[in-house]
Nucleic acid binder design. Structure first.
Lengths: 189, 189, 189, 189
DNA sequence: AATGAATGAGTGTTCATTCAT
DNA sequence: CATGAATGAACACTCATTCAT
C-alpha cells in the first residue's frame, strides 16, 4: 500500500484492515508508522538484492551472448506489479527518507549498475575504448528498460501506450551489440 | 514543494509561507489543495509541452546529425532541478491523480516518444528494418538519459554516484549510431 | 509506582515488568487497574493504621515528656521514602478516588489528629484554656512536621533545601512547650 | 482542570469545551498538552509569586505584631479553592515535571520560607538562640496552616472534619509567641 | 483582496483489557 | 495459574478549510 499510495497517503487503518488485524496490532510489532514503512521498504528491497547483487560471473562470455541476457532480466519484472510499485515508491519517497535512498543507492542501484559495467568491461571481444565510462555504458544498456518499466508503472491506471518490454529488450540488445562491436568489426574488416 | 515532498506530505502552511502569503490567501485563488496541485502540475507540465511537442522537422536530416541533437536535449535539463522534480512528482502521484497521468501521457510522454520515433523513421540513411518498432526505438534513444535524470533526482539528497549526463549523451549517441547504421554500413562495405 | 507517578501516569505494563510478571497476570488477581490501585492504596495505608491508631495511653504524662515523643514519631518516617510517597499519592488522588479519601480521613488522618488532641487534653500540667480547640492544637503540633515531610516528598527529585526533620522536631517541641506552658509558668511565677 | 484531575487525567477535549473553543484551537496557542500544562502551572504560580515574594519589610516590627500577620496570610487563601488545587497539583505532579518542581521550589516555597525566617530573625525582641535554624522556625510558623490547607484540599469532596483556619491562625500565633518569647520574658522577669 | 483565528474531521498512537493456549 | 498476542476505545495532535474582519 505504501508503494501504491505513498507514505503519507497510506492510512494505518487501511493497512490493518488489509492485514486482517486491528490498528493496535500494528503497534505491537512496529514503533511508528515510519518504522513500519522502513521495514516494508527494506524488506521489499531485500528481495531485489539477491537479483541485483548476482555474481557477475554467470554473465561472463562474449558480449553477443551476455548482453541479451542482461537486458532480458528486466523482461520478467514488469509482470509482477510489485516491483514497479517499489521502484515508484523509492523515487517518490527518496527525498523524505534519505536513509532509504542511501540503502537503495548502495545496495540496489549501484550494484546493478556496477555489475553490468563489470560484465561489459570483462567482455573480451569488445574493443577497449578507454574514453568510455563503463558506468555510463550501464545506463545505455538498461536505461531503455528502466524507462519502459517506469512508463508502465506510471500510466498503469490509464489507457495508453504500453511498451512491449520483451520486444524492446531484444531490439535494444541487438542495436547495442551493433554499436559496441562496431569499430571492432570494422577493424577486422 | 509538491514536486519535492509529494502531494500529501506538502502542507499548505509551508506553501503559504514560501509564497509569503497567509494560508487563507491560497483559498482566494484555489478551491482546494488538490485544485492548487493540479494547477501547479499543469503549469509545470505546460512549460515542458512546448519543447516536447516541438515540430520534428528541425530534427530531420542524416541520423548521424540528428541523433546527437535528440539526446543532447536532455543535457541541459538536469541543470534545472525543477524538471527532475516534476518528473519525479508525476511518477509519484500518477496513481493518485489519473487525470494528471492522462495529461502527462497524452501531452508530454507520447509526443516526445513519437517525435523521436518519427525523426528516426524519416531518417534516410537508416536501413529500414520493418521488424523494428519505432516507438521502442525511442525508448532505446532516450531511455538512458531518462534513467540518468531520475537517478540524479532520486539520489539528489545523498552523497552518491552522479552520472555525467553530457558524457552519457555523447557516448550513447555514438553507440546508437553504430548500432542503427550497422547493417547499412556493412551493406555498403 | 502509583505513589511515584500517580494513578493515570502509571502504566500497567511497567507495573508488570517491575513485578516480573506478564501484563496478563495482573488481571488474574485484579479486575481492573482501579481495583489494583485501591488494593495497593489500602494496603499501604493499612500499614500506617497501626501506628496512627496507637492507643494514646502510652503517651500520657507531663506535657514536657509527651510532646517531644509525639513529634519525634515523624522523625523516622522520612527515612523510608515509601511513606512520603503514599501521603503524596493520597493528596494527589483524593479528588479522583473519594472513597480512598474517606478511608484515609477516617482511619488515618482523624485518628492521628484526635490522638494528639487527646494526649494534650489529658496532660495535667496544661492550663486549661477552654477557648483552645484541641484538634487545632494537633495541627499546631504536627503541622510543621507534615509540611517538612511533604517538602521532602515534593522536592525529592531536585536539588534543593532539605529540612532536617530531627532538628525540626526537637526545636518545634521546645517552642510548643514554651507556648503551651506559658501562662501556666507565668502563673507559677 | 489540571489542578483538579491531574495532568494525565485531564482530557484536552474537556479543556476545550470548558474554554468554549474547539480542540484544535488549543493547538493554535500551545504546542502540546504538556506545553499547555506548563503555561498554566507557571501562570497559576506567577499569581502566587507576588504574595510569596513580598518584601519582608512590611512585616518588620515586634514579633507580637508580626507573627499574627504572617500566619493570617493563610487565612484568606483556603476560601479560593484555586490555591488549594494548585498546591495539590504541584505536590502531585512534581515527580513527573521536575522543572516545575524546581520553579516552585525556587520561586514559591523557598522565598516564602526565607521571608518568614528573615522576619523572625530581624525581630528585635526575640532572644537570639543561635542553635535555632531560622528556616526550621519558618516550618514551625506556617506548617500548621499549610497542613490545614492541605487537609481541606484533600478531603474537600467528602464530608469530614474541616479545620477552622482562622481560629487556627490566631491560636497558633499565640502559642508560638509564648514559646518564642519564653526565655526572653523569663529573663526580663 | 487578504488575513489569521478558529475549526473539526481525520489520523497516529497509547494502553487497559481480553482470551486462547 | 500464567502468558503474551491481539484488541479497540480513547486520546493527542494535524492540517485542510472556513469566514468574519
Amino acid at each position: 500500500m505504501f508503494a501504491e499510495k505513498g507514505f503519507a497517503a497510506t492510512r494505518l487503518e487501511d493497512v490493518a484492515r488489509r492485514a486482517d488485524v486491528s490498528k493496535g496490532t500494528i503497534y505491537v510489532y512496529f514503533e511508528t508508522k515510519e518504522a513500519l514503512f522502513r521495514a516494508v521498504a527494506r524488506e521489499a528491497l531485500g528481495k531485489r538484492l539477491s537479483r541485483a547483487g548476482d555474481p557477475g560471473t554467470q554473465f561472463d562470455g562474449p558480449l553477443s551472448e551476455v548482453l541479451p541476457r542482461l537486458v532480458s532480466r528486466f523482461v520478467g519484472i514488469p509482470a509482477e506489479t510489485r516491483a514497479q510499485a517499489i521502484v515508484r515508491m523509492v523515487i517518490a519517497e527518496a527525498h523524505n527518507f534519505p536513509d532509504l535512498a542511501r540503502i537503495w543507492h548502495d545496495e540496489v542501484a549501484m550494484p546493478l549498475i556496477d555489475q553490468i559495467a563489470g560484465v561489459i568491461e570483462r567482455s573480451q571481444d569488445l574493443d577497449d575504448d578507454p574514453s568510455r565510462d563503463p558506468r555510463l555504458l550501464a545506463f545505455s544498456v538498461i536505461g531503455p528498460l528502466v524507462m519502459a518499466l517506469l512508463h508502465r508503472a506510471t500510466f498503469n491506471a490509464i489507457d495508453g501506450f504500453v511498451p512491449d518490454v520483451e520486444a524492446l529488450a531484444a531490439q535494444h540488445a541487438q542495436i547495442l551489440l551493433g554499436g559496441l562491436l562496431d569499430k571492432h568489426k570494422r577493424k577486422n574488416n
